[in-house]
Design a binder for these strands. Structure first.
Lengths: 111, 111
DNA sequence: GCGTATAGGCAGAAATGCTAGGCGTCTCCC
DNA sequence: GGGAGACGCCTAGCATTTCTGCCTATACGC
């Protein structure tokens, strides 16, 4: 089991997607590539995880979607962050930072 | 919704438990208190999450348990780390660190 | 005798991400 | 013109994990 490529940590997927979308309108396929690229290929985001997540985020009103042509002349569904989504992203990032700190605190506890 | 107390981030519970147990033999109830205490009360670990997790870790051979009296004269199940558990803990910590770094990388990506 | 802290446990639900497929199109190259 | 592979979207079913909510029992102070 070479866990060279790690699955995305549960609970962080939404935040990562929101963050990528916050960088500018982007379609699903490109999101997965972007996440792998930026994370130095650490994360392996499966399409079967991505698309349901996108629909979830859209249903919650954090993302808005519309079809548009890509650079390669194909139709794709572009997502962009809503105002609500931006607030959500900020909240999730803050929560993540506090959590990461708490984990670090425990891990640093000396024997 | 004051999410003052955060639930434990999915996927980190096992690691945190292993880490606490690595500090010395300890029983379940004390583990939950320790985690809350060390994390500056950030984490709220429910007993309904803790005990199933302990059984899981024991079944996998990462923890070993034996009944013993506590300081207050009550019987409690003390857990200690096995050699296998120690290796597992190291692996999980390393994986966590790489993951946290990858998340940070994405979050730091400028607009 | 009673309430609270200590200590362990289970059943059921909810969320989340994965595996494993399917669909159609476009481009490139032989 | 035919095949391969990249692009792009999607669903169904599953496994795992953690939560909520409940139960039991003992020790101790009042």
């Amino acid at each position: 089991m070479a866990d060279d490529k790690a699955a995305i940590l549960k609970g962080t997927l939404d935040m990562l997607i929101l963050k990528i979308v916050a960088l500018g309108p982007i379609h699903g396929y490109a999101i997965s590539q972007r996440i792998q690229q930026i994370s130095n290929r650490h994360f392996q985001l499966q399409q079967g995880s991505l698309y349901p997540a996108l629909h979830r985020l859209e249903n919650r009103g954090w993302l808005a979607a519309h079809w548009r042509a890509t650079g390669t002349g194909r139709e794709a569904k572009f997502y962009k962050l809503t105002a609500k989504g931006r607030r959500r992203l900020e909240a999730e990032v803050e929560s993540w930072e506090r959590t990461a700190e708490a984990v670090a605190l425990i891990l640093r506890t000396a024997e």
